[in-house]
Nucleic acid binder design. Structure first.
Lengths: 234, 234
DNA sequence: CCTCTCTCGATACAGTGTATTGATTTATAC
DNA sequence: GTATAAATCAATACACTGTATCGAGAGAGG
């Protein structure tokens, strides 16, 4: 096991050559621009290097592997999450969750990467630190509950954002607007329902209120926060 | 837009050639075996075909694209989720969640795929149907709450399982046992804490109780279910 | 038996991440 | 200021990937 296996501790190499000074930050930014524009699949080392007028192998001085680049992208995205604000602990948690969701909606690749591997970058840790201090300063001081609450919230956001983005992408891929999407999958579902195998779902699709994505997100968040509160006895 | 764009409606081709009768099921099973053994990255059309003593192009008669194969794998995994059991609606929801988690721990690739794109296969729908009927039959009949509860639960499980499996894999990749893992990342975290930038996390790491993965999962689940209950006024 | 349709395997293409290597540039020592 | 050592880069190469294309061959229908 080497001494500094994690990219966060590996010192960034200093540039000696003149033309096109490179840096980890420039590389990550280029990768993010690519991912924003054409999706995560468009992020290849060749294309990132090309966007920086460099050969592909040049990047390997700054990054050991492509996964490391993705990890750096995730940390950069975490840095965009606004600092949590709120007077009560649940308001703080809510602002954290919606902040992450906001970033994920701006950078859909972030949602794809979230939770895919452990992230321990400085911005991610700073984000955790901010969440923790905000929580402690607003009255939640049972450590067991804090642990569980943060974990549950984290995990809820990961899943919610991932699913929401996945649906958005599928919708976009199958034609352009929402009407076309509904026309593409609705008939399929209707045929499935016509088999009679899914009576409860059929009824539910008919009668259930059609909620917007952000409403669903907020609703689940409310459940979770309410559950945490009630387990506090507060 | 073609008439049957979804693989679930495309009829399975019938075999005419004698040697090595193929079928969607055999292909999916081979892919699952590969993924179980060597991870999702080991699932390539060439390898799957090789495992079936066939040329790679042969699979394209049964599957239009690799994504379709992955979708079929997900549906097959959903079919392994045991039917929910329980007397009360929250017991039912809990059994659903732990059932999915169990499958994901047996098939880690399932966790990687979960939520990555919309899944509407028959087993997935059947699973939704079972959840719905179980819910309705145990007293939860407000449709708005049912919708929100199912969505929130679904999303929680997706995120929780994804994160848990990601951590497990990272742990396994960095040496073999848990002690080695802690020895690999703990020093890094300590050095980060030594900067003084993360006092709350430092304290928290010291004092917080160390929970097992399944305890964390159950705890978050409890919060969520409790929140749903309290929003029912029951 | 001939024909026609369907299916298969081979080949090919554009792309991927990355190991290797030889040249070229830079820093260091005298 | 020059010789030497070290560092860095671009090119090449490798083993893959998913999949389009297409010629050959097998099965069925007449």
């Amino acid at each position: 096991m080497t001494d500094s296996p994690l990219i966060w501790e590996r010192p960034e190499p200093t540039e000696r050559r003149r033309p096109s000074p490179l840096s980890r930050e420039r590389i990550v930014r280029a990768a993010i621009d690519l991912a924003d524009a054409d999706g995560l699949d468009a992020v290849s080392l060749r294309k990132v290097a090309g966007a920086l007028d460099a050969g592909p192998m040049r990047l390997y001085r700054y990054v050991d592997t492509k996964d490391e680049l993705l990890t750096l992208m995730v940390d950069a995205a975490y840095a965009e999450v606004p600092a949590p604000a709120g007077a009560t602990w649940d308001a703080v948690l809510r602002s954290i969750a919606t902040g992450i969701r906001g970033v994920a909606l701006r950078h859909e690749w972030f949602a794809e990467l979230l939770g895919g591997r452990p992230h321990l970058g400085p911005a991610t840790l700073a984000h955790g630190e901010a969440s923790l201090t905000a929580l402690r300063s607003t009255g939640l001081d049972d450590l067991g509950t804090v642990t569980g609450a943060l974990a549950a919230l984290n995990v809820y956001v990961i899943g919610a954002v991932r699913k929401e983005v996945a649906e958005r992408r599928a919708q976009r891929a199958s034609g352009l607007d929402q009407r076309q999407w509904q026309h593409a999958t609705a008939p399929y579902l209707l045929r499935m329902f016509a088999t009679g195998d899914y009576p409860a779902m059929e009824e539910w699709v008919h009668d259930a209120p059609h909620l917007q994505a952000d409403e669903v997100f907020e609703l689940g968040l409310t459940y979770l926060l309410e559950g945490i509160r009630s387990s506090l006895g507060t």
